[in-house]
């Protein structure tokens, strides 16, 4: 599904990713771990098409197609979803209306008819019931005044609605207490099916107690320095990153 080949990328002339290669197949969950400043969030931004980040060499293929020059909007419409580390607050824009805009944009892309507010509300309610979310998420403005946990739940709701092929969750566990973490992780597990792929970006191992990865990669200074199966995460938890980064 996703093929990253010797990717070099960065922003404002600083190269942050220095030759990353990674292959993610349908039905796989990959965890990308690493210390602060290793380039984890940059990788998420480059994959989702953030305009401030440029690919200098190498390529990213999604379902066989090169993503170079493809806008964030088109990547999203083709099924790439990014769960933000810090979802931005947008005062004045109703959350349900925002969700409907996003949902309808996909329908239009697929050549289908848009859902009217009534039908959309039914769909939204069913997703919220599945995730155990309160009605307030429909009434409030987009992330406006949301707590850290509420923002992440709202990200999960968006993922549930948009049903992406590839979801990249950037530090989903940051800012969550253990209860909120469980709710979000349960949601992600419910949404994950074998025809999809998931990339979890995380600093700590604890998220991986809830969402079990198939592979773990350690990122340091813009390179993947070690890859392994899920046991690697436990080793990291026990020993920290130092034993890998010290050469």
């Amino acid at each position: 599904m996703l093929e990253i080949k010797d990717l070099h990328a960065g922003s404002e002339g600083n190269e942050i990713l220095k030759g990353i290669s990674l292959s993610v197949k349908k039905g796989e969950i990959h965890a990308i771990m690493g210390p602060n400043g290793s380039g984890k969030s940059t990788l998420a931004k480059v994959l989702s098409g953030h305009p401030a980040y440029k690919i200098t060499s190498g390529e990213i293929l999604f379902e066989g197609k090169d993503l170079q020059g493809v806008s964030a909007e088109d990547r999203a419409l083709n099924g790439i979803f990014m769960g933000y580390q810090y979802p931005v607050e947008v005062p004045g824009v109703n959350n349900a209306e925002f969700l409907r805009m996003a949902y309808n944009a996909r329908l239009v892309k697929q050549g289908k008819e848009e859902l009217d507010p009534m039908d959309f509300d039914d769909l939204l309610q069913s997703k919220m019931d599945m995730l155990g979310m309160e009605v307030k998420y429909k009434e409030r403005n987009l992330n406006d005044g949301f707590s850290g946990g509420e923002k992440k739940k709202n990200e999960t709701l968006q993922m549930a609605l948009l049903e992406p092929k590839l979801a990249i969750l950037d530090e989903t566990d940051s800012g969550l207490d253990i209860d909120a973490l469980r709710v979000v992780a349960d949601g992600v597990n419910k949404l994950y099916t074998k025809d999809k792929a998931l990339i979890l970006i995380t600093h700590y191992q604890r998220l991986l107690d809830y969402i079990k990865p198939d592979y773990v990669h350690v990122l340091s200074k813009g390179c993947i320095i070690k890859s392994g199966e899920k046991g690697l995460a436990l080793e990291l938890e026990a020993q920290g990153y130092d034993w890998l980064t010290k050469v």
């Binding site: 305009p51 964030a72 999203a76 933000y84 979802p87 996003a102 892309k109």
Partner: peptide
Amino acid sequence: SEEQLFYFEQRGISR
């Protein structure tokens, strides 16, 4: 902000 707009775009909503 650019970040707000990117958020929308990442959800498939045009700028």
